[in-house]
Nucleic acid binder design. Structure first.
Lengths: 332, 332
DNA sequence: CCCGGCTCCACAAACGATTGCAGGTAAGAT
DNA sequence: ATCTTACCTGCAATCGTTTGTGGAGCCGGG
């Protein structure tokens, strides 16, 4: 009736539970013949290891927690997909938490995962997160940590980030190469390293082309469609003929604004976004965007986690490349 | 150093672990004063219940597994979001698995969840799933089951579905009311009850309007953008002036096809999709679509799960309403 | 013939929380 | 004063697995 235990197998074969346990876990101090008998009996009786008991005894689980701002975002959804594929391959289960960009939710998610005694946590911080003390506190010293996309310094474990600098640089250079003369930037939260790096890439491309960097056409905290629309009004009034955006939704707002102002895209106004969201290839004109390879990032981050858990490393830093997908909105 | 246990609290207060356990779990046979003291001490010592030990003893976990075809789909992402919000509120953790629409993956996901001793499973089946035997086998008799969106008969537990019939009926009627005379249908897999119900809604709307049901302009297995495009070629050749689609991606294909054929949308050709994907409001002309309220479905399904786990019901059937979002593609 | 070394297995103690049962105390009833 | 009753708490077993320690059996070398 109730599930069979190693004790059941033990009595059935006249050995002790310890021997059964060792046989099942591949301990070398078990005679091959008895191991074979145990394995056979286990299969015959339909034995399945009780994970709870095993974990309790070993003091750790094979669960990896993933914390993201929101799962219903193209980027994070794909990261999770990628991570899940390698983690489950490696025998780990995945539990997913959302922070909704709120620090409070991030704290409670960490608490929940700590309560579940997860073996490791993969996290991309909320927009409100600036320091990592709550994380240090939550993970103690046994839980492995992998930060991805949005990372914070001063924490143990591994970091996986996009090559945001290069992505922004390439996008901006692409606009320059297409003859745009005054390129504004919609950037995110400058207290987040990710957005800072993108801003720096944008600035570097301008500098390399001998173009001036005008703070008046750099718009911070602009990641939503609405923000993008509003900032672009000011950008156009300031004489811009192109926009580099560190997000696709804000780039969409920019596109709508430009069209509404009677500008032709890409003839009069160029736009490049970031993230390569599905809709970028559906709007008209189709929008250029920096693809961040989220699935690959998920796989890499999960690989880093597996290595941490296996004790192969103490921490590594991985950079995921980006690809500029050029479409109509920036090509003339 | 290591996490504090109930034993630590017990010795600190000169009581036994049993009393501490009872106090913490709300057992009434504990004097209020000692309970207060224990609660205070617990907080002071930063106690957190060891979930593994608790589960081992109680023989069950507080984990709910969610199985979906893919998490990086608008609809499922939002369902999960909704479900997670009520489950975590109710003290359950969530673990998520993807089947990638494959039966094999669905089986292995079920096995994994069973191994984790989950308390309940919420599932929306893969496209390949037709019978439910593998599920019956995996869940045994202790695991509660909630099916949502795509459901199968003959399984215990609760079912949460969209009012697909009404959604399709309303969408089709909307096209009729806008004066379209020959309305084709892009439908999905007819072995899936969900798609059958949508087809029936479409057919009923035609019947109620006294319009003929022509099998020649009903296209099965059409859910991808590409399929939608191809089927619409034939629909137009067959004289259609509108398309009801049971998916947004196929509706997108229909839109592209119509425009390419030189038809004006909505003047010459009307289109209504299903799912209200983000991109429907981004394409031009903006596309009408049946909103399925995925977030609410997730909340409802999770609520049903909580009630099952609490023993309040043995199973219920819940219908989530749909809302037709009318945009340019069907309004003239 | 004895002893060191090796292989393999049994014993029993954990891991931390839960819970049936028994017992002890104090209040109220007789 | 004694007994019942209600209320509270302690004792100890238990969930199923893992693992340190110890020892039985066997082989070969001295």
């Amino acid at each position: 009736m109730s599930a069979t235990t190693i004790r059941d197998i033990a009595v059935a074969l006249g050995v002790t539970p310890s021997t059964v346990s060792r046989a099942l876990s591949g301990n070398p101090y078990v005679k091959e013949s008895t191991r074979a008998a145990i394995l056979m009996k286990a299969r015959e009786m339909g034995y399945e290891r009780n994970v709870m008991a095993s974990n309790l005894r070993k003091g750790t689980t094979n669960i990896v927690g993933i914390i993201v701002p929101r799962i219903n975002r193209e980027f994070f959804g794909n990261v999770i997909s990628g991570a899940e594929s390698v983690l489950s391959e490696a025998g780990y289960s995945v539990v997913i938490c959302q922070t909704h960009e709120r620090l409070e939710d991030e704290k409670s998610a960490l608490k929940v995962l700590a309560g579940e005694q997860v073996a490791g946590i993969m996290i991309s911080h909320s927009a409100e997160t600036v320091s990592g003390e709550h994380i240090l506190e939550a993970i103690g010293q046994n839980v492995k940590l992998v930060q991805f996309d949005r990372v914070i310094d001063g924490l143990p474990g591994s970091k996986v980030t996009n090559d945001d600098f290069k992505g922004a640089y390439t996008a901006t250079k692409h606009l320059i190469d297409n003859g745009y003369k005054r390129i504004g930037a919609l950037v995110g939260f400058m207290n987040t390293s990710l957005f800072r790096r993108r801003y720096e890439g944008y600035a570097a491309a301008l500098a390399d082309a001998g173009m001036p960097l005008d703070p008046g056409i750099v718009f911070e905290n602009t990641i939503l469609r609405k923000n993008g629309y509003e900032s672009t009004i000011r950008a156009i009034d300031a004489g811009c003929d192109a926009i580099y955006s560190s997000g696709d939704f804000s780039a969409l707002g920019a596109l709508e604004c430009a069209l509404e102002r009677g500008l032709r895209v890409p003839e009069d106004f160029g736009i490049v976004g970031t993230a390569n969201e599905t809709f970028t290839s559906l709007v008209s004109p189709r929008m250029s965007s920096v693809d961040q390879h989220p699935f690959e990032m998920g796989r890499s981050a999960a690989g880093a986690m597996v290595r941490l858990l296996g004790g192969e490393t103490q921490g590594e830093e991985i950079l995921i490349g980006t690809t500029l997908v050029t479409r109509q909105s920036s090509t003339r």
